[in-house]
Design a protein around this nucleic acid. Structure first.
Length: 469
RNA sequence: GUCCCCGUAGUUCAAUGGAUAGAACGGCCGCCUCCUAAGCGGCAAAUGCAGGUUCGAUUCCUGCCGGGGACACCA
């Protein structure tokens, strides 16, 4: 039983008994410890509605309130706050009960879309927030008793794969070239930009891929397998629960895309504009009457990510039967998701019972206040970031505890370094940008992972020395 | 230009419409010597501006100022 909910119910009974049954008791945890443990704030509003003095009404509420065995004291304070101090034995039994302090949820099926790296390249810092915030949410919702379905919407399809496959062919399909995916991607792009003949081959591979050419498809599968192994290594280092079975990439929706467009067409939602198939929804009209388009098919054919996301919505709502779909995606995608969600509803790709929610997050900035980059302006690979976190932690640990064996210092450095990166992110406001700063996240002072980890270590040490449990 | 998000101590973050706006780091003033690697106590320090709704506004509404982002065939 949730304590707040229990108190709310008891107060509601008391409110009803004194003729204030229409008002909510508004029970909350106490604002300050000296007030007690919980407080009910609803009397002031109720008194206003009833035209009564708040203190008088509060007295009557307390008179009718039954908190036997729950509270040691119930006091009226200020203009009409009611403060409750809990019975220690009651708290003890609540804590002893299984998951006592967790509100038991009515179980729902919840899809969580997070991480979503582009498999053509290596994961970079831009994927960090989605990955660890989404993972944290998945765990929380599971702990509340929900059926959580993780969906890693990886970028495993599209024009860029034609380029990569063509380059891989040039190298005799030797997948060891993929060990450094970033280098491989850059080389492919260079070939594509510099050699028109290569570009033609690349384009033909895209067509082969999309038309289901088994030979090309097999090479593509191998590429995806290797690339996904890179991601898995990162997930394992981060302690993130994603695995291959959670992958539901863009390619998975390939066959649905023409059907989605046909369906929109049938509903009369599509307007052709400059050769592209667009949907113009009135809710995206500006003051000047200009309406933002949602492009679902390019001039000359070919689909865009709005189409893919519509197919994903349909799958999640209608096939999986999700009650909620949570997207942990960069704030810059806000407009895109507003459009996709609105269109999905309009076209019946999402039922009214299916809640579509974009939970955006801000950008990771460097100390200069600009997006976090390497010194020469390149994107920071996630593996390099985690390497540096462990190295810095190792230097700190070695400095403070030079007597420990190196293997032990390495193990501690891993926990401290990775923990610092994750905690620095999760302890920040999700929706605003934040400055990524090694020194503050690895500090042994303040609101940091090293501080928390040391506090736990110290408590365990006390228990050990005191011979407690 | 249009639309969206955000403005809280010097800094990083808190505060279901509730009481005296909380922490941490940094700063200043004292004190102490170590429970795995964080010493302890104290002090100063903030709701961008102007209205409105409300018994009560950091929170909701309007306008302004400031910052960020997005806006047609990339994702």
């Amino acid at each position: 039983m949730n304590i707040r909910a229990l108190l709310e119910a008891r107060f509601a009974d008391a409110f009803a008994a004194v003729g204030a049954g229409d008002a909510r008791p508004l029970v909350a945890t106490a604002a300050r410890p000296e007030f007690g443990d919980y407080q009910a704030n609803g009397v002031m509003a109720a008194a206003k509605t009833l035209g009564r003095k708040p203190r008088d009404l509060a007295n009557e509420v307390v008179g009718s309130l039954d908190l036997g065995g729950i509270a040691t004291s119930v006091d009226i304070a200020g203009p009409g706050f009611i403060n409750v101090r809990l019975e220690p034995s009651f708290i003890a039994t609540q804590i002893g009960a299984d998951r006592a302090l967790v509100t038991p949820a009515v179980p729902q099926t919840i899809v969580i879309d997070y991480s979503a790296p582009n498999l053509a390249k290596e994961m970079h810092v831009g994927h960090l927030r989605s990955t660890i915030i989404g993972d944290a949410m998945a765990r929380v919702l599971e702990a509340l008793g929900h059926r959580v379905i993780r969906q890693n919407h990886v970028g495993d399809w599209g024009t860029q794969f034609g380029m990569l496959l063509a380059h891989l062919e040039e190298l005799g399909n030797d997948t060891t070239a993929l060990e450094d995916l970033e280098v491989f991607y850059q080389a492919s792009k260079r070939r594509f930009d510099e050699d028109p003949a290569f570009a033609d081959v690349a384009r033909s591979r895209v067509v082969a891929l999309q038309s289901g050419d088994e030979v090309v498809l097999e090479r593509w599968r191998e590429f995806v397998r290797v690339s996904q192994a890179h991601c898995q290594a990162i997930y394992d280092r981060l302690g993130v629960g994603l695995t291959a079975k959670d992958t539901m990439g863009e390619s998975a929706y390939n066959d649905d895309l023409p059907k989605i467009v046909a369906m929109l067409q049938q509903q009369g939602l599509i307007t052709e504009s400059d050769g592209a198939k667009c949907v113009f929804l009135p809710e995206f009209a500006a003051k000047d009457g200009e309406v933002l388009p949602i492009i679902v098919e390019k001039t000359g054919g070919g689909f865009l990510y709005a189409t893919t996301d519509l197919a994903a919505v349909r799958y999640r709502c209608h096939v999986i039967g999700a009650a909620r779909v949570l997207y942990f995606v960069d704030v810059r995608q806000s407009l895109h998701f507003r459009q996709v969600f609105a269109l999905a509803r309009r076209a019946g790709l999402a039922s009214d019972q299916c809640s579509l929610e974009h939970h955006p997050f801000g950008t990771m900035l460097g100390k200069d206040g600009r997006p976090f980059r390497t010194r020469d302006g390149g994107v920071v690979k996630l593996s390099a970031l985690l390497d540096e976190a462990e190295q810095r932690a190792f230097a700190l640990v070695s400095d403070k505890s030079p007597n420990l064996a190196e293997t032990e210092r390495r193990a501690i450095a891993r926990a401290v370094g990775i923990g610092a990166v994750k905690y620095a992110d999760l302890s920040k406001n999700r929706t605003s940008d934040y400055v990524f700063d090694w020194d503050s996240m690895l500090a042994f002072d303040g609101n940091t992972a090293p501080y928390l980890q040391y506090a736990v270590t110290r408590i365990l040490s006390l228990f050990r020395r005191g011979d407690v449990a």
